[in-house]
Design a protein around this nucleic acid. Sequence first.
DNA 1: TAGACAATTAGCTAATTATCTAAATGATGT
DNA 2: ACATCATTTAGATAATTAGCTAATTGTCTA
Lengths: 99, 99
Amino acid sequence: MNKVFKALSDPTRRHVLQLLRDKPMSAGALAAHFTVSKPTMSAHFAVLREANLVDASKDGKSVIYRLKLSVLEDALLGFTGAIGLELNATKDTKDIQHD
Amino acid sequence: MNKVFKALSDPTRRHVLQLLRDKPMSAGALAAHFTVSKPTMSAHFAVLREANLVDASKDGKSVIYRLKLSVLEDALLGFTGAIGLELNATKDTKDIQHD
DNA sequence: TAGACAATTAGCTAATTATCTAAATGATGT
DNA sequence: ACATCATTTAGATAATTAGCTAATTGTCTA
């Protein structure tokens, strides 16, 4: 959980997660949304992988990143639960279609 | 919001927030829960104040820290909303008495 | 097999962070 | 006024972080 919060402490990484919310994307497609260099983005991806927030799979020349929503959810719920902040997951993911 | 996530990236600071969940506490009382020095704790408090996550008020020789739950809630909801992670506040704080 | 393309690794730097001890500030009580 | 107690500030250091360019690895395709 500490790694998750460390990962979330950088705005670029939070934005990456946000981009991955809709659909998996390649490292290059993600990097295109930012002004920093590709090696810098690669380092951000490594932090997200290390926190287990994303999943990487090779597809030809590309690496496809996919958000692991449940890991994010667990970390956030773990924390809000400990704080007694009653954000509770509706878990009604029925109405949200992720293809 | 960035400052909130930066503040949350340190486990000591997250634990401080957790201790403040129940009741306001003095800097010294908070520091007593940790092994690091008091100046180090004071620096952590400064980060939490800077993020507007806590409120400090002087009471005699002591400084009393108080959690600002709504700021934490707003930052978390802002992020989960952007991600499309449907953690939603029940807001049934009826059953939780904060003095 | 050579070239092109996608991504990561290597190696570096500047800035930030967490930590410490010692000193300063500020309030209370004698 | 002075000693004491609570907390913060000053000043230093070691570790981490985000960023860069250049080089490497791996996969296609011509």
